[in-house]
Amino acid sequence: MRQFVAVFVDALRLLRARALFWITLGISALAAVLYLSIGFDENGVTFLFGASGFESEFLREGSPLAEMFYLGIFSMIIVNLWLSWIAVILALITCAPVFPEFMAEGSAGVALSKPISRIKLFFYKYLSGLLFAFLQTGIFCAIVFLAIRLQVGTWNPSVFWAVPLVVLMFSYLWSVMVAVGVRTRSVMASVLASLLVWFGAWIAKTVEEYAWTAAEFGEVPAAQGSMRLTEAEQKGWRDRYSQVSLAYTLLPKTSDTVNLLQRLVTVQGQKKFAVSELLNLMATGAPVRDDEVEEALERHSVGFIIGSSLAFEAVMLAFAGWSFCRRDY
C-alpha cells in the first residue's frame, strides 16, 4: 500500500508538472462549459448562453425531445468527437513519457533496487497512466452532469458511463504505448505506434462495416447513395466476411467502445436512447426510429466489443510486462 501510494503520488506529480496536463484539463473543462451554454427557451434552442439560436417547435423549453436532443449532442458530438478523439490524443501525449522517463539511465535504478517486485512496479506505473484519463473524463462528465440538470432539469447519472468507457478505450491505446515505450524507451516511437494502431483499428472497422453491409443488405456505399449488388456478389461477401473482418476482430474496438455509451445513456431514466431518432429528427424534423439502423448499430455484443479489445490489451500488457521484467537497466 505504501509503495502504491508512493508510485501514485509520483505519477500525479509528474502529470501536474506537465503544462500539457493543465492545457488538456482546461480545454476539457472549456468543452464542457460550451456544452453547458446550449439551452432551450420558449421558442427553441439557444447557443452560447443565448447569444444565438434557432426556433423549433419540437425543441424548446419543456418539450420532451429537448432532453433527448441535449443528450444526443452529448453522446454523438461531444463523446465521439471530443472525448474519444481529441481528449484521448492529448491524454496519450501527456502520458507518453511515463515509461521512457522512468526507464532512463540513472533513474530506474533507485526504484528497481527497492523491495518491490518488477511486475508490481510495472502495474503501478501502468495504472497511473489510466489515472490521467480518469481524471480528465471525470471532471468533464461532472460538468456535463450539472449542465443537463441546469438546461433540461433532470439529474442524469447515466452520463457517467462515459468515464469507464473512455478510460477503457484509452487503456487499449495506452497498452500499445507502454509496450513500445518499454521496448524502445522512446516517447516519439510510442506515440506513433499507438496512433498507428488507432488508425489501423479505424480502417479495420470501416472495412468491416463495408463488408457487413455488402453481405447483409447486398448494398455498398457509392459516390451517389448506394449501389445494389447481385445475389452472387452478396454471397461472395458473406463467405468472405470473416476473413475481411479479421483485422477488426483482432484489433481493439476503439470507437465501438465509446459508442456503447449510446446504448447506456438513458432518457428520463428508462427509454432507451435511439440514435436513429435523433438523426431523423435533425434531418427531417420528426423523431422516427429506424429499427434497421438501430439493429446495425448494435450488431456486436458488448461482450464481444469489450472482450476482444481487452484480449488485445492483455497481449500487449503481457508482452510489455515481460519485457519490463526481463531487461537490464
Binding site: R2, Q3, V5, A6, V7, V9, D10, R13, L14, R16, A17, E101, A104, E105, G106, S107, G109, V110, A111, K114, P115, I116
Partner: peptide, 23 residues
C-alpha cells in the same frame, strides 16, 4: 546510482520521500 537522475519535477524533499515510500 551512477549519474543519478531523479525527476526534474520533484523537490529534494519529495525525492527522499519517494525512495522512502518504495522502501
Amino acid at each position: 546510482p551512477e549519474h543519478a537522475r531523479f525527476p526534474e519535477y520533484l523537490t529534494g524533499r519529495q525525492i527522499v520521500g519517494f525512495t522512502a515510500g518504495l522502501a
